[in-house]
Simulated assay, not measured.
Amino acid sequence: MTDAERSASDPVALEIDGVTVDLAGHRIIQEVSLNARGDIVGLIGPNGSGKSTVLRTVYRMLRPAAGNVRAGDRDVWTVTPREAARVIAAVVQDTPSDLDLTVAECIATGRVAHGRPLGRDNSEDSDAVEQAMAQTGVVDLAHRHVSTLSGGERQRVQLARALAQQPRILVLDEPTNHLDIRHQLDLMALVRDLDVTILTTLHDLNLAAAYCDRLVALQHGAVVATGTPDEVLTPALLHDVFGIHARGITNPLTGRLHLLYADATERTP
C-alpha cells in the first residue's frame, strides 16, 4: 500500500482469501473469499451469519485464524495501522455517541492517518474535511458537539470522517442505520459515485439490489452465493437463507431489481 497506489487513478483492489475467524473457541466464519475493485460489493445474510465479522478482518479489528486480506499488493495485517488507514477507512455501527468533540473536530480525526496530529492541520487537511462535510450534508452541524446529534446525524458524520481520510477502500457496516428514507437514498447515491472500492453490509435487500454491483450471501459463516443482485436474490435463495417468500420485479423508476415480500401467513400466487 504505497503512495503510488493511493495516487493511481484505478481504485485499489480488495481481496479476501479463505478467511476463517474463531472467537471464544467457536468458528464464526469459515474460508470466506471475495474480491472487489472499484465496485460496490454487498454482504447480505441473516443476523449472526458473519457479515460484520468479515468486515472486522478488513479494517483490522479481528485477526483471521487462517486466510488473508489484501489491499493492493499488501496483506493488511503485515503493515502498520497507520499504513492501513491511509488506504482503508471504515464506518462501523458501534461508534461512541458521547464524544467531547465538535462535528468538525470529529471529522478531522480522519486526517491523523496522514501523519499530522489534531490541531496541526494544513490546507490539504482543511480542504479534505470541508469537502467531506459538503459531500455528506453536515456543514451546518460543524460546530455542534457529536453528543448532541441524532443517530442519523452521527451516521453521516462518521461517513464524513471516513471520507476525510481519503481512502481507496471504504468499508461500511450497515451505513443506512438510523437514517430516514431520504438520507438512506442520498447516502447510497453518494457512496455509489465515489471512485473507491466499497465493501458494505446491508440488511435492506432492496437497497442492496439497487446500489450494489455484486452481492455475497452468507449463511452460518460461509459463502452460499456470489453474483449480481439478479443472480443472488432468487426466490430459492431468499427462502433458504432468510426463510421468506419473495419475488423480484423490475423497478420501473430505476430499471433495477426490486423485491416483493409475503410473510408466512400469506400465500403467493
Rank of each mutant, 00 (worst) to 15 (best):
N177P: 14
N35R: 08
V171W: 01
L259M: 08
A142N: 04
L159G: 08
S150W: 13
N206Y: 11
V91D: 02
A90T: 06
R82Y: 05
A142T: 10
R37I: 09
L202I: 13
L260A: 10
A108M: 15
C212Y: 03
Q93H: 10
A208H: 10
V54A: 13
D193I: 02
L257V: 06
R256M: 04
T53K: 00
I29A: 12
R247V: 14
V223R: 00
L163S: 07
L237N: 00
E174N: 12
A89W: 00
D213S: 10
P175F: 07
H183A: 05
H183L: 03
V32N: 03
P64A: 07
D100V: 09
V224F: 01
R60Y: 11
S33P: 03
T95Y: 11
A108W: 04
D125K: 07
V87P: 02
P175T: 07
A90K: 01
L202K: 04
S52Y: 03
H203Q: 14
I28E: 03
P46W: 01
V76K: 12
S97C: 09
L163V: 09
L101I: 13
E31N: 11
V103D: 04
L179E: 12
L215D: 00
P252K: 11
L62Q: 15
I88D: 01
E130A: 10
G119D: 12
E266T: 15
D75T: 13
H258C: 15
V129K: 02
K51Q: 08
L170N: 05
S9K: 14
V129D: 06
D180E: 13
R56D: 03
R168Y: 05
R120E: 06
I16N: 05
R154N: 13
V224Y: 03
D230N: 04
R70K: 15
A66M: 04
T136L: 05
T20W: 02
D195V: 11
R156Y: 05
D127E: 14
E124K: 02
R161E: 03
R182C: 09
S150D: 12
R116I: 11
R267D: 12
V223D: 00
G152Y: 07
Y261P: 12
D94Y: 04
E266V: 14
R86Y: 06
T228I: 00
L237M: 06
Q93Y: 06
T95L: 14
C106N: 04
T2V: 07
L101F: 15
R192Q: 14
D75Q: 12
R256D: 10
E231L: 01
A65F: 01
V224D: 02
G119C: 11
A225S: 03
V32M: 10
D193P: 00
A225H: 00
L159P: 05
T53N: 00
A90L: 03
